[in-house]
């Protein structure tokens, strides 16, 4: 295992993190920022899960054959709870955006900033 294959998932998580981060910074729409952060987060999930992978191993469910090698379940556990936590935190972020929409009538960060400037004396 040399060359590109040795780091295959690493390139994917790098790409996902960067795409997500770009969206979170560059896109003025607040919902789009939340989606971007979600993608950033899944990039980190790919990093963790690929750490747990071993060539020649199988899913960590006991097979009965004592020679079986299993994938490392620790990253799996960390990430499966993180996925459920991520949907919960996304829901809180979305409800904050609902309140922002109610207060400002828009969900674009630049328009909100403009409204804030207008309000100042």
């Amino acid at each position: 295992m040399g060359g590109a294959a040795a780091h295959l998932p690493h390139w994917a998580y790098l790409a996902l993190m960067l795409v997500g981060l770009y969206a979170a910074i560059a896109k003025p729409n607040l919902a789009k920022k939340v989606l971007g952060l979600g993608i950033f987060q899944t990039g980190i999930f790919v990093f963790y899960i690929s750490l747990g992978f071993k060539f020649g191993a199988t899913a960590p469910v006991v097979t009965g054959d004592p020679e079986t090698v299993y994938a490392n379940p620790l990253p799996h556990v960390l990430i499966l709870t993180a996925i459920v936590v991520s949907v919960s935190t996304m829901a809180v972020a979305l409800s904050l955006i609902v309140l922002i929409k109610r207060a400002y009538g828009t969900t674009e960060a630049d328009e909100i900033a403009a409204l804030e400037v207008e309000d100042e004396p």
């Binding site: 999930f45 690929s50 199988t58 899913a59 799996h76 499966l80």
Partner: peptide, 9 residues
């Protein structure tokens, strides 16, 4: 990647 529990979630 053999992370079946994560896939399920």
């Amino acid at each position: 990647l053999h992370a079946v529990d994560v896939a399920f979630t």
